[in-house]
Write a protein that binds this DNA or RNA. Structure first.
Lengths: 227, 227
DNA sequence: CGGAATATTGATCAAGATCAAAGCGAGTGG
DNA sequence: CCACTCGCTTTGATCTTGATCAATATTCCG
């Protein structure tokens, strides 16, 4: 049942345009953790970290978009999440990254040492609580992903659109990712994603000015068809 | 590792035979948390907690098996996990339970107040770390569930069998749950689960002495077909 | 025993995958 | 400035997997 991207072809595989520049900033992990971090920029499809690598750093998207994914034994790719500006990713409880992470578009991320956070948490229970809460939100997100994957194609696509819409203001969605990325996130093929979007456009639920831009024309209708 | 004979509640059947009796024990949450807990016994299909309820207690299965699940808008049920003897469940980061929990068979669980754990964690960073680690393991489990749900029927069933086999010694699996439970966990129908098991038996990969007992005849063949 | 719940098996259907062919759009070089 | 190309997306035709509908078998208990 080959569906998702069978082979990660190296096509436009940018040499992971990694560009590091030290910056001093004071962002927050997820609400209350102050940290200093370096900033790095990755080109489109640049690898941020690989599955199984030591999880020594925690990341925050400053600009752009990041996807985490796993490649299954048969070569298919399953995307676990998309992270947009402001989102933290790569913070693991264990010692290594269970997924790989790549920049979807050219992206800037802030980096902080995991050990620094863990050290803080050992002394400050508020920080410890913050780390736990972060993992709890990831857990809730993945649980929602499970529910998505047992729905039919239209429901999955609508779920995805509503999720993306909730993460940016307005009724227009500017998609940083390709149809293949969407398909690999939803467990569908690009053809099914494309046909479903066309169908929604025909039902006047959305408009597709171009492939990367989607306008929600009737959000409540969308909410209903997502069951 | 968890011996404490609960005075049993009589047979008890359906109506969520909830019966509480205080016991003094010293089990551990997941490695290092000492806690005192009361013991409760639930009849088959007895409700332990409902989705959306306050998550004031944390549970540990002493005997039996527990399932957590959500009911989708269209009435379908998605099982999130099965917890067997020794497993902790119901520990949430947030204030309420995102799933419902029921006893699969008559089960005894130990209960401890969540607030007690959180209170401990505020003073003892090892406990805090333990709570975080627990949620991290749940996260890993749900991530594995996502990967399972994008596989084909045979792969899902084999995944399930290997998972269950790894949780009990030997090559015989004693299933506490029905075909419907398995189907709702795997995102399949009971017919597909049944046919797939029959198929595996015909291929001599497993044996089915009866519906609730499965023998793994060829574990490496199973591992291969699960891709 | 008898009856209800659970499981298996069979026949058919449909959603979505696969295979195949255009269409589109942005960047490149003549 | 235009034509060409490359990668991405859409559309079409067909096939396959697992769902659905239906009947039979088995198990569990009262």
């Amino acid at each position: 049942m080959l569906m998702q991207t069978a082979i990660r072809k190296g096509s436009s595989r940018q040499p992971a345009g990694r560009e590091l520049q030290i910056t001093s900033t004071v962002p927050e992990l997820a609400g209350s953790v102050e940290m200093m971090g370096a900033t790095m920029t990755f080109g489109r499809n640049g690898e941020i970290y690989g599955e199984g690598e030591q999880a020594d750093y925690v990341y925050k998207v400053v600009r752009g978009a990041v996807r985490t994914y796993k490649v299954l034994a048969d070569g298919r790719r399953q995307i676990g999440a998309f992270y947009l500006a402001g989102d933290v990713f790569g913070l693991e409880v264990g010692e290594e990254h269970p997924h790989s992470a790549e920049a979807v578009t050219e992206s800037t991320v802030m980096v902080v040492k995991r050990s620094a956070l863990i050290g803080l948490a050992a002394r400050d229970s508020d920080v410890a609580r913050e780390l736990w809460a972060f993992t709890g939100r990831e857990l809730a997100r993945v649980q929602a992903h499970v529910l998505l994957l047992v729905k039919n194609a239209q429901e999955r696509v609508v779920d995805f659109l509503l999720e993306m819409a909730n993460r940016q203001p307005g009724d227009a969605i500017e998609l940083p990712m390709s149809r293949q990325d969407i398909a690999d996130y939803l467990g569908l093929t690009i053809e099914t994603v494309s046909r479903t979007l066309t169908g929604l456009e025909n039902e006047a639920a959305i408009a597709l000015p171009n492939a990367r831009r989607i306008l929600l024309r009737n959000r409540s209708a969308l909410r209903e068809m997502n069951a």
